[in-house]
Amino acid sequence: MIEVRNARKSYGETVVVDDVSITVPAGGVISLIGANGAGKSTLLSIISRLLPAPAGTVMVEGMDVTTTPGDVLARRLSILRQDNQMTARLTVRDLIAFGRYPHSKGRPTVEDRGHVERVIRYLELEAVAHRFLDELSGGQRQRAFIAMVLCQDTRYILLDEPLNNLDVKHAVAMMKLFRRTADAFGKTIILVLHDINFASCYSDRIVAMRDGRIAFEGPPEEIITPAVIREVYGVEAAIQEIDGKRVALYFR
């Protein structure tokens, strides 16, 4: 369980995360949606201790993220940020293997190697596993980063816009993989998504942010409604049900 209590963060005069409190129960896929600048990435960074918040507390399974030793937390929670510039030339396999660092501390066991190969297979990276990151396409690189975080094999996985740069096929495959990982291994996966239909079809709960606050929270059927979408994005959407999943049409 992740418990955020009264988290606040401001830059100068602007408050970007405004007194947010939220409890995320263990297990399942949770999607965080909201307009650009709503504070999604900032909240995720606070939860994952990448960004110190001046006020509020974040507890992951009862551990305060600001005081728990970094390596303990790294075996419990992993995070991938929205944009990742990489200057170091690593091969895809080496990058993914570094996901095992919290467990192996640089001395990979047979088990660690098995993890690496399995994740490479799941994310269909076999063909590029030996290539350097700067010789990949944007989507391949994004998949390599996600693979690294999955290889870390933590109970809580936080991914900021993981579908960035992915084509339709890989986006769907990725969401299915998250769903399977959550169902089969009881992982808690928190995703920031811009495609509300992916959020609708694959998550157990959706959290909608607006102006640094949590505006709505609930299962997809409560969030994917014309009223909520209007409130959150200021866009008119028609909702249709396809195969029991709610899909928003907002292209007009």
Binding site: L73, A74, M86, A88, L90, L95
Partner: peptide, 16 residues
């Protein structure tokens, strides 16, 4: 090498 991935990656992997 981890530090070369950037501060956020380093923190995520549990290193100071």
């Amino acid at each position: 090498t981890v530090a070369g991935l950037g501060e956020d990656f380093t923190t995520n992997l549990g290193l100071n």
